[in-house]
Design a protein around this nucleic acid. Structure first.
Length: 269
DNA sequence: AAAGTCAAAGTGACGC
DNA sequence: GCGTCACTTTGACTTT
């Protein structure tokens, strides 16, 4: 992959613009005053696919009854039900069976607990199944409309607010990850440009050095120079052996160039 | 046990 | 007013 390849990704200075077509209206609120990062921050994307495939989740659920069902999804949770499924360090929380039960207990009671305890800020851990379903949903669309939120909440036996928060945090993580990717890309671009700059500086220096030296034809023995009869320009015969016919009235000719009689366009020369 | 990490949740500002 | 965002706090959990 060459430099051009590296930099012809559509990022340019306006990094990471591709994929924005899939963003919801909220993603266009980039004019938000506060900014997390420096001027290097690329515009970030969630890079999700189609935006109209919600139907899968729009089941025959009465949205007004969301969260009312006492059914505890955690009762059906897998043995690793306390594990979050989506972070880059996602497989960290393997638990022994004993603590799993406690986890199930804790998680399963949260929905009603929080409703009743009010201010108590109890931390929940989504089950694997919940996280997986949320991930699936997120892959389909990174934002939810109220109906979708309600349906998903009901499906997961969570409060809509929890679904909302999960999506919010998920978007933030996606953005952060994209930022890291873009940052790496920019670093590579920067390295390439630095190398290129160094090379060009060197080349420039060499050219300057060359310019300081006397013209090449003045460094050549007179015998190696000849004049183009058509344009009356003087040139040196590369590799001249001194046997060429010479016209030595060349020295300060006004129109001089490095004439090679063997390659000069005027074939008559 | 302290430090570190992750993710749920709170807060306030902004745009529509 | 609502939804989303950036930023922050906090609790659960892991690592050292």
């Amino acid at each position: 992959m060459g430099f051009d390849d590296l930099c012809n990704t559509g990022l340019g200075l306006g990094l990471g613009c591709e994929g924005n077509s899939n963003l919801s209206k909220s993603d266009h609120q980039q004019r938000h005053k506060r900014s997390l990062t420096t001027s290097l921050e690329p515009s970030l994307t969630l890079a999700l696919s189609d935006d109209n495939s919600y139907q899968a989740l729009e089941t025959q659920i009465d949205v007004n009854k969301a969260c009312e069902e006492p059914t505890d999804p955690c009762q059906q949770a897998s043995p690793h039900s306390g594990v979050s499924s989506f972070s880059n360090a996602s497989i960290k929380r393997e638990r022994d069976p004993g603590s799993e039960e406690m986890e199930v207990e804790r998680v399963s009671s949260r929905a009603s607990d929080e409703d009743e305890e009010g201010s108590a800020r109890k931390k929940l851990r989504l089950t694997k199944e919940q996280s997986a379903l949320l991930e699936d949903s997120f892959r389909e669309h990174s934002t939810l409309n109220p109906k979708q939120k309600q349906a998903l909440a009901k499906q997961l036996n969570l409060r809509p607010r929890q679904v909302e928060v999960w999506f919010q945090n998920r978007r933030a993580r996606t953005k952060l990850k994209q930022t890291e990717v873009d940052c790496e890309f920019l670093k590579k671009c920067c390295e390439k440009l630095t190398d290129e700059n160094r090379r060009l500086q060197k080349e420039l220096q060499e050219l300057k050095t060359l310019k300081l030296a006397p013209p090449l034809y003045m460094q050549l023995p007179a015998a190696t120079l000849t004049m183009c009869p058509s344009c009356e320009r003087i040139g040196g015969i590369a590799g001249g052996d001194g046997s060429s016919k010479t016209n030595n009235s060349f020295a300060m000719a006004p129109k001089t160039h490095f004439y090679n009689p063997f390659t000069h366009p005027s074939a008559a020369c």
